[in-house]
Design a protein around this nucleic acid. Structure first.
Lengths: 138, 138
DNA sequence: TAGATATCTCCAGAGACTATAGGTTTGGAG
DNA sequence: CTCCAAACCTATAGTCTCTGGAGATATCTA
């Protein structure tokens, strides 16, 4: 039986975060010691590692809740799990595209500025004031 | 003189968001009509467009507050404005790098799954359970 | 002048935690 | 066995950038 602190050390998930996951219904309410402290088993460790990994990949709480629910029915087809991961992949790709546009715009703005003239002539400030100076929509 | 709704329509910033910016000190407290409603002038329109543009580029409120403060001193050198933009560019680039790693990992996971077998054999679920199946750190 | 629309303030919620306060339990040293 | 520090408990508030609602007031149009 592991304490919440042990679980935390083994998974790298902070103690308050573990309690938060319990509250959000990702982890089942743990058994308690006589003194009302949480006690965990191997199963909980695996579940928490799953959650941690999914969060690292950027999945949000509700997607993880769904995946956990699916994994409880091992004999059903996995189309939904695939869909969740595929949707997420798409949203990651969208985010990358958006950030790349920002990167270009920012790089262009910064490249015009040597950091060494007066604010009134600064391209950084001027570009922010005037969207018309931008190359593309964003 | 523009009402808050007019300002909203012209800039595309929602009414409660304009009030929020005022509260955060990005916009000066507006003049008021006899009946206590906010009234704006061209200056405010420009300021709000500046804020909107900076937000679109992903700058956070405190960075924008700093840029506005700088722009009030047109004769000082612009090194700080350049630094803010350059720092931000770096953080955008870092974010892109991270997302690209995620993208690769997710794409690999999804590619192993045809969405058509049982959950217990699903690579999506298995990869989430077992970090060891991953190609790289993330 | 009536009624529709816009505005006001204040408060709550989103998401995913993180931190604090004030109190209780546990585990190891002496 | 006793004591004390460390870990744990609950409850609550704060982070960040908005967004939405309730209930009251103001403005505009017919």
């Amino acid at each position: 039986m592991l304490s919440i602190g042990d679980l935390s050390k083994r998974t790298g998930v902070k103690v308050p975060t573990i309690r938060y996951y319990e509250q959000m219904g990702l982890l089942a309410a743990a058994e308690r010691s006589e003194g009302n402290q949480r006690r965990y088993e191997r199963q909980d460790l695996e579940r928490l590692a799953f959650i941690r990994h999914a969060r690292d990949l950027g999945l949000d709480i509700s997607a993880i809740r769904e995946l956990i629910a699916l994994s409880q029915h091992p004999h059903q087809p996995c189309g939904n799990a695939d869909r969740i991961a595929t949707d997420h992949l798409k949203s990651v790709r969208d985010k990358i595209e958006k950030l790349k546009k920002l990167e270009q715009e920012l790089a262009r703005i910064v490249s015009h500025c040597d950091g060494d003239h007066a604010i009134e002539d600064c391209y950084v400030i001027r570009s922010l004031s005037d969207h018309g100076l931008c190359d593309s929509e964003h």
